[in-house]
Design a binder for these strands. Structure first.
Lengths: 192, 192
DNA sequence: TAGATATATATCAGGGAGATATATGATGGC
DNA sequence: GCCATCATATATCTCCCTGATATATATCTA
């Protein structure tokens, strides 16, 4: 059985924020969903055409001076209904792939310093993310203070902050553990 | 440019734990990496053949009574070297897709109760995960107490615990926020 | 004036997941 | 005793999805 196409709903969701072109859909996702979602053009353009075919969106060609023509897509009532149905469905949890954990799981085959490097890099990454979340939050309070979506948007930001704070702590813990092992020697070093 | 094939390294990594069949590779991943990695047969079988072709693994046919023949794959020295090289490379961070956040981001278009349900479900999910992590930790201490990989394996478990604990807190926070909004009415309810 | 960046649409190769097909033995419930 | 289910074992297919690339043109910048 074909598993369901989530890009469809992500794109429909973005169209629910206002009429826009495929290019705008991409930009919107990069600007507002980038911390937990992404879509590529390879999905966006074919799906937009499909949505029109299914009556979930309409398409209007807009001529522009100097720039390529825009195909402006607009969600229909049927599209809003389809989106709402999906929003009410329980969210599926996707474990995904965490490359740093795969590398760490196998890292006993390498010098301890390798694991330490991974943990330090990861710590930096989440500190940067925390800064980004803070910036976005400031921007939201300044520019979207009256939008009914604000509490939900802040909640998605808070998710990221909770995760990143927890992972900075995890990195600290892991660095302490590995530093405690550095005095001895790893398997890899004993071999060589 | 073709992005690199991570399944290759995951499978090579599993083979570094001991010789095994494609079926065993799958089982091993499900038993020990399932919390942060997955591989499907659609990847495993073709990649194993490819690894043999590249000299990173060898294959021996094992006849069995009553059961299908086993193709037992074993990592070579070249394979270990290739794996080690990858383990030393910095880990890439993949944002991935978090469906619950996409739904929550758009949830202002639905009744508040919908967001609450999502948050409550998510809370349950992470409480279950925390129990699973505790079980695995007990098992590791009992059965792998002397393996040089133990500190690393415990670190990957700790990662999961940190994330899940943080997300249970996030759910509590989100539930409090949404419950505070329930007294009023959502956009969707005002419309109808 | 050359190069980067933005606007705009479109497609392809490859990575990857999940389902399914095929065969057989063991296990367990009714 | 029979049926269902699960474990062993290999293999393949469809669909989803990403990242790269192609193609134009306008503006901005060094």
């Amino acid at each position: 059985m074909a598993r369901q196409n989530k890009s469809r709903y992500a794109i429909l969701g973005v169209l629910s924020l206002g009429p826009m072109s495929g290019y705008d859909v991409r930009k919107t996702i990069e600007r507002s969903l980038a911390n937990f979602w992404s879509e590529s053009y390879g999905q966006i353009y074919p799906i937009l055409r499909q949505l029109v075919q299914e009556g979930l969106a309409t398409c209007a060609l807009e001529h522009q001076e100097g720039r390529p023509d825009r195909r402006v897509y607009e969600i229909t009532d049927a599209g809003r209904e389809e989106l709402r149905r999906w929003l009410l469905d329980p969210a599926e949890h996707d474990v995904g792939r965490v490359e740093i954990l795969l590398k760490l799981f196998l890292a006993w085959q390498t010098p301890v310093e390798n694991g330490l490097e991974k943990a330090r890099d990861h710590r930096e990454l989440h500190l940067r993310l925390l800064e980004r979340y803070a910036e976005i939050e400031r921007w939201l309070h300044e520019h979207q203070s009256t939008h009914p979506g604000l509490p939900y948007w802040l909640a998605t930001l808070s998710y990221g902050r909770h995760v990143s704070r927890a992972l900075v702590e995890w990195c600290d813990e892991t660095i302490r553990t590995l530093e405690g092992m550095r005095s001895g020697r790893s398997e890899a070093e004993v071999e060589s």
